[in-house]
Simulated assay, not measured.
Amino acid sequence: MLKAIILAAGKGTRMKSEKPKVVHEVLGKPMVYYSIEAARAAGCDKVCVIVGYKAEEVEKSIKDTYAKLGKTEEMQDVVSYALQTEQLGTGHAVKCASDFIGTEGDVVVLCGDTPLVTGKTLEQAIKKHVATENGVTVISAMLSDPFGYGRIIRDEKGLSKIVEQKDATEEEQAVKEVNSGMYIFKCDALLAALSQITNDNAQGEYYLPDTIEIIKKMGLPVDAAAMEDADQIKGVNTLEQLAEAEEIMRSR
């Protein structure tokens, strides 16, 4: 079984808007819609959207979009919601969907503010994940300017860990391969790892990437799969980036 979690609980203060970030539109549809559709195109049967800031507005935006497309009934069985009442990091957000995750199959974790990722890219990463029986596969990208992104740190066995910008040494900051914020996990491994992560870091948050070292210690393989088109990891944090995403989407 393959399912997806979409992180959509944040406010998005840099958007300079009272609207939740993920409901800002790209070509007439909310950003989060594209993440849902990418997950479905990649073969996910069920999608859980993690909501927080103005949760009802996010849910209404998604439901209204599918209603306009005449897909209300179809999507009732596909999309569900989990509430993150406090913004305590990506690890905490995913933990809010523990019941949805369960212990069977695999789960793809996506961001509601990365509308450019495609089902094809996710499908390629999922195939690698399944073929190598990884506990977790991180979707990565090579960037000429990696500032701000978590770095993929490798060792002789493959993926060693992911280090956030604020916690990285100078040597680690020089690494060009970055974490896209998208992952594929074995459900049972993810649930076990989420119960062990802590908030002992510069941000005081529960980081989802911290599950990687834990899953590695379980004896499961972990790796990163680099996507061919680095544009697809572009997140939208400002109105300028929203316009850029719309331009890329239009050119497709």
Rank of each mutant, 00 (worst) to 15 (best):
K3C: 10
A4K: 11
I6G: 01
G10C: 11
K11H: 15
T13A: 14
R14I: 08
M15E: 05
S17M: 08
K19C: 11
K21H: 11
V23P: 07
P30H: 04
Y33I: 10
Y34S: 03
A39L: 10
R40E: 03
R40T: 01
A41N: 09
A42L: 02
G43H: 00
C44F: 00
D45C: 02
V47L: 07
V49C: 06
K54Y: 02
K54M: 08
A55N: 03
A55T: 03
V58N: 06
K60R: 15
D64P: 09
T65P: 06
A67F: 08
A67V: 10
L69I: 00
G70P: 06
K71A: 04
T72F: 08
E73K: 14
E73Y: 12
E74C: 00
D77I: 01
S80F: 09
S80I: 12
A82M: 03
H92E: 11
H92A: 14
A97M: 11
D99A: 14
I101F: 03
G102A: 01
T103A: 09
D106A: 07
C111P: 00
T114R: 11
P115L: 00
V117H: 03
G119K: 01
G119Q: 00
K120F: 09
L122D: 03
E123D: 01
I126Q: 07
K127E: 14
T137Q: 10
S140N: 05
S140R: 05
M142Q: 13
D145G: 07
G150L: 00
I152F: 07
R154W: 01
D155W: 13
E156V: 13
K157H: 13
K157S: 12
G158I: 13
S160A: 10
I162P: 07
V163M: 03
V163K: 07
V163A: 05
A168G: 13
T169N: 01
E170L: 14
E172W: 12
Q173S: 15
K176N: 14
E177S: 12
M182K: 13
F185W: 01
D188I: 12
A189E: 10
L191N: 13
L191F: 04
A192S: 11
A192E: 13
L194C: 05
D200A: 10
N201P: 02
N201M: 01
Q203K: 13
G204Q: 07
Y206P: 00
T211R: 10
I212H: 03
K216T: 02
L220A: 06
M227S: 05
D231C: 04
D231H: 08
G235R: 14
T238W: 04
L239H: 10
E240S: 15
E244T: 15
A245V: 08
M249G: 06
R250L: 08
